Each structure stands twice: as structure tokens, then as C-alpha cells.
Amino acid sequence: MQIFVKTLTGKTITLEVEPSDTIENVKAKIQDKEGIPPDQQRSIFAGKQLEDGRTLSDYNIQKESTLHLVLR
């Protein structure tokens, strides 16, 4: 499925993911596309910070959902 990741600069990245993917996985995909190390990424969805060990389905993130990426 496709999800979108919006950065603070307003750029939107499209990722191909599975509901079973962990947040860690997703951060690795963002690193592949953007070169941002996962330890600098904070992902926010529906106002909640997403934890690395959880999966997209844990957070009820579905296709075409938009995550927000904040850098630390």
C-alpha cells in the first residue's frame, strides 16, 4: 500500500509499505529516499509519536494515510 510522509519543509514523500511493516522499517525506507538517519526521525500520526517496534497496523495506518516527519 502507499502512504505519504510530509516533512516540515512541506515536501511529501510517497512510500510503498505493508500494514505489517514496523515503524523502524518505514524510517529505513525514508532514509533510502531522503538520506535522513532513522535516529533523527520522529514520525507523528494523528497527533501521536510512533514507536519503532510497533507496526503500521498497530496505529491503524491505512493506505494513503499521511505521516508527519519531524527531525530531532
Rank of each mutant, 00 (worst) to 15 (best):
I61H: 01
V5P: 00
P37W: 13
G35I: 04
V17G: 00
L56F: 02
K11V: 10
I44S: 06
P19N: 05
T66K: 03
T55M: 09
K63D: 13
Y59S: 03
E51P: 02
P37A: 10
G53K: 11
Y59M: 04
Q31K: 10
A28N: 11
D32K: 13
Q41T: 13
V70I: 11
I36E: 06
L8V: 12
L15I: 12
I30W: 02
T12W: 08
S20Q: 09
I3L: 05
Q31H: 14
Q31R: 12
E34N: 09
K48D: 07
E51L: 11
E51Q: 10
L8D: 13
G10C: 07
L15M: 04
V5S: 00
L71T: 10
D21S: 06
Q62R: 11
S57N: 09
L8W: 15
E34T: 15
Q62T: 14
D39A: 11
S65A: 11
P19Y: 07
T7S: 05
I36V: 09
H68T: 12
E34S: 13
I44C: 15
A46H: 13
L15K: 00
R42N: 13
G47K: 04
P19H: 05
N25Y: 11
S20F: 09
E18K: 13
I44P: 02
P19C: 06
P37V: 06
N60T: 03
Q62V: 12
I36G: 08
T66E: 07
T14G: 05
K63L: 05
G53M: 11
K27L: 14
T14K: 10
I23P: 01
T9I: 07
D32Q: 14
A28K: 15
K27T: 05
G53R: 08
M1V: 04
T7L: 15
R72A: 13
S65H: 08
K11E: 09
R72H: 12
Q62N: 08
T22V: 04
L67G: 01
P38R: 13
N25K: 14
E24S: 12
I36F: 11
P37Q: 09
G35V: 03
K6L: 09
T22K: 08
G35H: 07
E16L: 13
T22I: 04
T9V: 07
K6C: 15
V17A: 04
S20R: 08
L50I: 04
Q41K: 06
E64Q: 10
D32I: 13
I23T: 03
L15E: 00
D39K: 09
R72K: 13
D58A: 04
H68V: 13
L69D: 02
I30A: 06
I36N: 05
E18Q: 12
P19S: 08
D58K: 00
S43M: 15
Q40F: 10
S20W: 14
D52I: 05
F45N: 05
K11Q: 08
F45R: 07
K27P: 00
K63A: 15
K6N: 05
L56C: 01
E16M: 13
I13Y: 07
K48G: 08
A28S: 10
L71W: 09
P38E: 08
E24V: 07
T14W: 06
K29T: 03
I36Y: 13
K6V: 14
K6Q: 09
I61Q: 02
V70M: 10
S20G: 11
K48S: 09
I3A: 00
T7H: 04
D39G: 12
E16Q: 11
K11I: 10
F4M: 05
E18A: 12
L67Y: 00
T22G: 02
K11A: 08
I30E: 00
Q2R: 14
F4H: 09
K48R: 11
T12Y: 10
I36K: 06
I30M: 04
K27F: 10
K6H: 15
S20T: 12
S65Q: 11
Q62H: 11
T12L: 13
K11F: 09
I23Q: 01
N25C: 09
Q40W: 11
R54P: 03
D58Y: 14
V17R: 00
N60V: 03
G35C: 05
E24D: 08
D21K: 00
E51M: 10
P38S: 13
T12F: 09
E51K: 07
Q40N: 10
K48M: 14
T14I: 13
I44Y: 15
E18I: 11
G10K: 03
I30R: 00
Q40V: 11
A28H: 12
R42M: 15
T22M: 06
K48L: 13
Y59Q: 03
D58G: 02
V26T: 02
K6I: 14
L67I: 14
G53T: 09
V17E: 00
F45C: 10
I13E: 01
D32M: 13
E34W: 15
I23W: 11
K11R: 11
K63M: 10
Q40H: 13
G10W: 04
D39R: 10
L56W: 00
K48Q: 14
I30K: 02
V26P: 01
K6M: 09
Q62A: 10
G53H: 14
F4R: 06
K27W: 10
V5L: 05
T22A: 02
N25R: 14
I44R: 04
